[in-house]
């Protein structure tokens, strides 16, 4: 069979099984929905805390910290959704901007308050582990939603898409934890709020490399209607 004949057979087979598909919504629309979900999580976090965050928002560095992490998360989410579309990629400027925003936020956390060292190890651990778990829980639903949204596309670079997805969900959770958690001690925040962000983002990148990357299935007739 010649190439032209094979091509004809292939095209006829594909055309014969074609069904209408619903194209992906634009990145902005999907990002908007994800931010809406994050807003709902924010409302829940704000109504289930003993932290007087409204008073703290009067301090510029605190407000800036929360805003920077939220902005970095939004940018990461946008990159993740964009990576789900073949031919569109995360620009180096946008990646760099996201990283810089997060780093400036971390720097603000580190220099915002003097570090306390008077904790007993037991106290440090018992309080901290709870915060780490809470950070992960706050990120869980947005992470699942964003993973699903990215998976619905066809990401060509699984690890990058996974890392962006993890970074988006966890950075937002970090910002939410600054609202929810009453402790402002940099050592506590950097250890128990930031470490889960880094660890889960790395795990998300690994998971993305394994499961998020677009791999065509054997049959050609499937469609996502």
């Amino acid at each position: 069979m010649t190439h032209a004949e094979r091509h004809r057979v292939l095209v006829e087979a594909l055309a014969g099984t074609i069904k209408p598909v619903r194209p992906l919504w634009p990145v902005r629309a999907r990002l908007g929905l994800w931010l809406l979900l994050e807003a709902l999580v924010l409302v829940w976090a704000a109504t289930h805390t003993g932290n007087d965050f409204m008073r703290k928002f009067g301090h510029l560095d605190y407000a800036l910290e929360v805003a920077l992490f939220a902005a970095a998360a939004t940018l990461a989410a946008m990159l993740a959704l964009r990576l789900a579309i073949p031919g569109r990629r995360a620009g180096p400027t946008e990646v760099a901007l996201s990283v810089v925003l997060a780093l400036v936020g971390i720097a603000l956390v580190a220099i915002g308050e003097p570090m306390r060292t008077g904790y007993s190890l037991g106290e440090f651990l018992s309080v901290g582990v709870g915060c780490a778990i809470e950070t992960c829980l706050l990120a869980a639903l947005p992470w699942i939603a964003l993973w699903w949204a990215v998976k619905r596309g066809a990401p060509m670079r699984g690890a990058a898409a996974g890392a962006s997805t993890g970074a988006a969900a966890l950075l937002f959770a970090f910002a939410l934890m600054r609202i929810k958690c009453p402790i402002d001690d940099p050592l506590h925040i950097l250890t128990w709020h930031l470490m889960p962000v880094l660890v889960i983002t790395a795990l998300s990148a690994l998971a993305g490399a394994a499961w998020l990357r677009f791999r065509p299935r054997g049959g050609g007739g499937e469609s996502r209607t």
Partner: peptide, 27 residues
């Protein structure tokens, strides 16, 4: 061709097809 067909829902109307097409082909 199978991959193009399966990923057809990811093409964004109004954008040039070629970057989308060749990204899939490259993958």
């Amino acid at each position: 061709f199978m991959a193009l067909f399966q990923a057809r829902h990811t093409y964004e109307a109004g954008r040039p097809l070629e970057p989308w097409l060749f990204a899939i082909a490259r993958n």
